[in-house]
């Protein structure tokens, strides 16, 4: 950890990485909404975030575990992507990402204010 990094920026970094990764999985589910036999995939956000924060997942080997979503209704062609679930998650993940960005910004502003001896930068 360098001088500029605070524990908070590290956690927020993982949070943003995971949000972006989840968003890409959702996009992939939406892209394959008409692909026969495709199964929806997602990550267990809480579990992966804990794993990242425990230092188990090093930055160079960022590899969250994507699994098939259980309990979805399957169409006759073997595809089980639920449009409602994916669009809701898309919006939710986007907002969570936004929250992460805003908190990270305020964290950097705090640092910057410390650098400028408390005067507003």
């Amino acid at each position: 950890m360098s001088m500029i990094d605070t524990p908070m920026t590290a956690v927020l970094g993982h949070f943003l990485d995971l949000s972006a990764y989840r968003e890409s999985l959702i996009s992939s589910n939406l892209a394959n909404i008409d692909t026969p036999g495709y199964r929806a995939r997602d990550i267990n956000f809480r579990q992966e975030l804990d794993r990242a924060d425990s230092g188990e997942m090093q930055y160079a080997s960022f590899s969250p575990l994507a699994t098939q979503v259980r309990g979805l209704i399957e169409r006759p062609d073997g595809n089980n992507v639920s449009l409602e679930r994916e669009t809701l998650l898309l919006a939710e993940t986007q907002m969570k990402f936004n929250i992460g960005v805003q908190v990270l910004r305020s964290e950097f502003h705090r640092l910057s204010s410390a650098i400028h001896e408390g005067s507003t930068s």
Partner: peptide, 12 residues
């Protein structure tokens, strides 16, 4: 580049 060969996002 990031070594994410096992990344499971799939296009169509």
């Amino acid at each position: 580049l990031a070594g994410l060969r096992n990344a499971s996002a799939r296009g169509v």
